[in-house]
Amino acid sequence: MAEVKQAAQALDAALALLAAGEVVAIPTETVYGLAGDATSGQAVARIFEAKGRPRFNPLIAHVASMAMAEKIAVFDPLSARLAENFWPGPLTLVLPLREAFGIHPLVTAGLDTIALRMPRGFASGLIDRLGRPLAAPSANRSGRISATTAAAVAEDLGDRIRLVVDGGPTPVGVESTILKVEKGKLRLLRPGGVTADEIEKAVGMGVERYGDAAIEAPGMMASHYAPGASVRLDVAEVHPGEALLAFGPRRAAGSNDAAAVKNLSERGDLREAAANLFSYLKELDRSGAATIAVEPIPFDGLGEAINDRLRRAAAPRRHDMNRD
């Protein structure tokens, strides 16, 4: 089983494993990431193996500085402005790839672009010490609920990796927003920890949604972030035996008969709801209920990211991702 070490004591152990081509679960401000050297084919292959992740699904490369980022990707003026406003932080930019830096092709899934993010905290210091970018998708088995605590990582991946760095619960609670600048326009590929409103206010232009686009960034698969139970959205009534993921002060009809209830935010606060989303889904999944009913959640602000994750959690999935 993986060793779990507190972040304050884990830097040297994490560096040694990464330098040897191993993978390490690390905290970021969004969710926990399964990190490996983005320039090492051995390390990136181990990420895909540990997660059981399809290799056509690209990874985000994480950097510690703009100097490192500019060696990997080409920044147009608008992308540079976005980085200046939101890095370090929960924004990922999809940019043209510079071939000379040595990002392994598995990271980009054969695309001529790369998804880049600059995280805060332990992850930033680790990348800086390593001197190379880290590929780091969420630290969970592919398609399952993302981990926001070290305990959740250890439960899901503890038999597949050697080290989990414990930095406490992640403050944002959902993955980064993924944005692409294309022909002078902003395309939102995945809503996340930075809202579209915040982006529009920072750069003075609108953000277009991607629609039914081909996979060109992480988190765009139809079925993703899924618990073992099925998920039923926007419920007005809870069926007998269902677990309930609630939001706000008012309950759906039948909530008193729910198998279990977790309220994302009794105050109706979307930032609190985002921070609680994945951990509460995990808790309700453990209740043994066959279905998790979800009360309606507003789409404004972080609600867009929350609803995106819930829609993907509720999407039809392969048989092997259902509860036995």
Score class of each variant (00 low, 15 high):
residue 123 A to S: 15
residue 141 R to D: 06
residue 150 A to M: 08
residue 153 V to Q: 07
residue 107 V to T: 01
residue 152 A to P: 05
residue 113 T to W: 14
residue 152 A to L: 09
residue 149 T to C: 12
residue 160 R to C: 07
residue 136 A to Y: 01
residue 112 D to Y: 06
residue 120 R to L: 07
residue 150 A to T: 11
residue 149 T to R: 13
residue 138 S to W: 01
residue 130 L to N: 12
residue 144 R to Y: 11
residue 127 I to N: 03
residue 128 D to P: 05
residue 129 R to T: 07
residue 150 A to W: 03
residue 156 D to H: 01
residue 110 G to P: 09
residue 127 I to A: 13
residue 154 A to D: 12
residue 146 S to C: 00
residue 123 A to I: 10
residue 112 D to M: 06
residue 138 S to P: 00
residue 145 I to M: 04
residue 160 R to W: 08
residue 122 F to C: 05
residue 126 L to E: 11
residue 139 A to E: 05
residue 136 A to G: 15
residue 147 A to L: 05
residue 155 E to N: 09
residue 143 G to Y: 02
residue 152 A to V: 05
residue 137 P to W: 04
residue 138 S to I: 01
residue 157 L to T: 06
residue 125 G to E: 15
residue 158 G to D: 11
residue 157 L to E: 04
residue 146 S to T: 00
residue 124 S to Y: 10
residue 116 L to E: 08
residue 125 G to Y: 13
residue 141 R to N: 04
residue 111 L to S: 10
residue 113 T to S: 15
residue 145 I to G: 00
residue 149 T to V: 10
residue 118 M to C: 15
residue 123 A to N: 13
residue 111 L to Y: 12
residue 159 D to M: 02
residue 144 R to M: 06
residue 116 L to W: 14
residue 148 T to P: 11
residue 150 A to P: 02
residue 145 I to A: 02
residue 122 F to L: 01
residue 147 A to R: 00
residue 116 L to V: 15
residue 108 T to K: 14
residue 122 F to V: 06
residue 161 I to Q: 00
residue 157 L to A: 04
residue 108 T to Y: 07
residue 111 L to R: 15
residue 143 G to V: 05
residue 109 A to S: 15
residue 155 E to M: 04
residue 157 L to K: 14
residue 123 A to Q: 14
residue 116 L to T: 13
residue 119 P to T: 06
residue 124 S to E: 08
residue 137 P to I: 00
residue 127 I to Q: 06
residue 136 A to S: 07
residue 143 G to P: 06
residue 153 V to C: 10
residue 135 A to S: 13
residue 124 S to A: 14
residue 114 I to D: 03
residue 149 T to H: 15
residue 134 L to M: 14
residue 154 A to L: 11
residue 112 D to T: 12
residue 128 D to M: 08
residue 113 T to K: 15
residue 108 T to E: 10
residue 137 P to M: 05
residue 117 R to G: 03
residue 131 G to N: 02
residue 111 L to V: 06
residue 143 G to I: 00
residue 145 I to E: 00
residue 116 L to P: 15
residue 130 L to S: 13
residue 115 A to I: 04
residue 130 L to Y: 14
residue 134 L to W: 03
residue 127 I to E: 03
residue 107 V to A: 03
residue 133 P to T: 13
residue 128 D to G: 04
residue 114 I to T: 08
residue 121 G to F: 11
residue 121 G to E: 09
residue 115 A to Q: 00
residue 155 E to H: 12
residue 107 V to N: 01
residue 141 R to A: 07
residue 109 A to C: 09
residue 150 A to F: 00
residue 109 A to P: 11
residue 112 D to F: 06
residue 147 A to T: 14
residue 159 D to C: 05
residue 143 G to E: 03
residue 147 A to E: 02
residue 118 M to E: 14
residue 144 R to S: 11
residue 154 A to N: 06
residue 154 A to Q: 07
residue 139 A to M: 01
residue 107 V to K: 00
residue 136 A to N: 04
residue 158 G to L: 12
residue 122 F to T: 02
residue 148 T to E: 07
